[in-house]
Design a protein around this nucleic acid. Structure first.
Lengths: 237, 237
DNA sequence: ACCTGAACACCGTTCAAGT
DNA sequence: ACCTGAACACCGTTCAAGT
């Protein structure tokens, strides 16, 4: 038999036409991009925690060390996965005419992108690389801030505030109350609260939970309004 | 020799005075509270990730299975650690006279408590149990919201917004740019950005980083102001 | 250049057994 | 009631070796 070498492009260098001996460590035909794609697939399908070097290796029918040869180590793999996702994430359109509307729209774009790809965002967040993922969206936000007359350190602060809010709403969205362990669900904790200073109806409302998407967008508007006023057209100030 | 049993209170039940044979699995004198305290110590000293069942066991000079006997499993241990910390965290005083000031003060108290004990907060967050840690501070915030005339679902939303912001600023504070891997530091990423829509000075400012504490308190004020107006004394509305 | 096998130092968890 | 020892099924990572 002529060995089961996969049909990738052969004849890389000046290879002599020796008939190959029975290979024990034979070529798998893997390339770095295949490894990264497989990793991205695992993360999107099963979450950031499901990505392990061994799991990835077995998925590709290869040894763990092969993964290391291609990508270095886990962190470098994660960076590559995040960069790969970033390529796909084009800049979303910004809506509105007035300055505040447009800045808010750019902020909401970051939020929607983050929940839209929450698994990869969680992965990026685990190594502190969310900026790598959403850089074009962050630049777009800065651009709208500039148009609204907010620049320099004020623009930097506005961006940081928006990103913090997005991150905050994300982590509450990652762990929905349903799959929290018994006794840790907010509904249970709050239903046991009795305090003379707080009315029953408020406590009941808190125990009930809220619509995260709506609240995130509202909160982002409040944050944005702190940097660019509602009356709008004060470009160049 | 009379065995090296620790000097805890003996004579639990009606024990017959038999001289103990050479003990292979002898009593360690451990109690659940000792396990939880040791775990809290590890977390405070070395962070949430440093807490492992094996590490904890060896710290206590005991087998891993002993830890399981006392606390159940890792998650239950974490809950116990968080509850233990919660006991220590008394309610912080609220400052200001006007309603918005007081609500903001209550929100800032949550933020300060969280960064003040960031390791335990990170541990609580890892199982979605931050409410368990800061419940009294959250109740205090609700109380101030009620005093300001914000109740029911509006109070619930205000609380959720504040908690999201606190969580967001926390996770950016957890992983300071300094100990991020080469090439992932915002300063490096941003210094490579060139975009016609954004001025150089703004990009430079973003690359520079900001004062998180100041910004967190400012952002919390913006969020609070969205629910309780600045003019203040509209109690009961 | 590309890949395997064995090994090291970790994890959380369970189970039977000892006193 | 309290604790040990062995085991199972996982991790990330490295190193020497094979073709």
């Amino acid at each position: 038999m002529l060995s089961g070498v996969p049909s990738t492009t052969r004849a890389r260098s000046g290879a002599d036409p020796v008939t190959a001996a029975a290979p024990t460590a034979r070529r798998a035909g893997l390339e770095r991009v295949d490894v990264v794609d497989a990793a991205l697939g695992i993360v999107e399908a099963e979450g950031a925690d499901a990505l392990s070097m061994r799991r990835l290796a077995s998925e590709l029918g290869v040894t763990t060390t092969t993964i290391y040869w291609h990508v270095g180590n886990r962190e470098q793999l994660v960076v590559a996965v995040v960069e790969r996702m970033a390529e796909r994430l084009g800049a979303a359109p910004i809506r509105g005419r007035r300055a505040q509307q447009r800045v808010h729209s750019a902020a909401v774009n970051i939020w929607r992108s983050a929940i839209g790809h929450r698994n990869v965002t969680a992965l990026a967040s685990s190594i502190g690389a969310t900026t790598l993922l959403e850089l074009p969206l962050e630049v777009a936000l800065l651009a709208e801030l500039e148009r609204a007359g907010v620049r320099g350190t004020r623009a930097r602060d506005a961006l940081a505030s928006v990103l913090a809010c997005v991150a905050g709403f994300l982590i509450t969205a990652w762990r929905p109350p349903e799959d929290r362990p018994e006794g840790l669900r907010p509904s249970q904790i709050w239903s046991a609260v009795e305090d003379a200073r707080v009315s029953r109806s408020t406590v009941r409302a808190v125990a009930g939970g809220t619509d995260l998407d709506r609240l995130a967008e509202r909160t982002l508007l409040a944050v944005v309004a702190d940097y660019v006023p509602a009356d709008g057209a004060d470009e160049e100030r």
